[in-house]
């Protein structure tokens, strides 16, 4: 099984969510940088939401900001893993 994570940008994730409906998403708490990254499982491949330049994972300092963005992208459920 391929455990490597890839980056996905907001536009691509929005398009995927629109096409496939429910997308399971996990907000992973990162202690060292005090924030969360958003992880989604797309067809068995783990993807991490990237910044607008698609070059690094997007870190949300606040959970409410993450949920707001998730809602905007059309994600219906986000589980938090601290």
């Amino acid at each position: 099984m391929n455990n490597a994570k890839t980056l996905i940008n907001t536009a691509a994730l929005t398009a995927y969510a629109k096409e496939h409906g429910q997308v399971p998403a996990i907000a992973l708490g990162i202690e060292s940088i005090e924030g969360y990254i958003l992880q989604v499982d797309l067809d068995g491949q783990i993807n991490v939401l990237s910044t607008y330049l698609s070059d690094k994972p997007r870190v949300f300092k606040r959970a409410d900001a993450l949920l707001k963005e998730a809602k905007k992208m059309g994600l219906t459920t986000v589980s938090f893993s601290l």
């Binding site: 907001t10 536009a11 607008y52 949300f60 300092k61 606040r62 900001a65 963005e69 905007k72």
Partner: peptide
């Protein structure tokens, strides 16, 4: 449309930065 989408993402991230600070 893609360019505009990138701009929207940048705007969203900058707004979030201001909120964080």
């Amino acid at each position: 449309e893609i360019g505009q989408s990138v701009l929207d993402e940048l705007s969203s991230e900058l707004t979030e930065n201001i909120e964080d600070k």
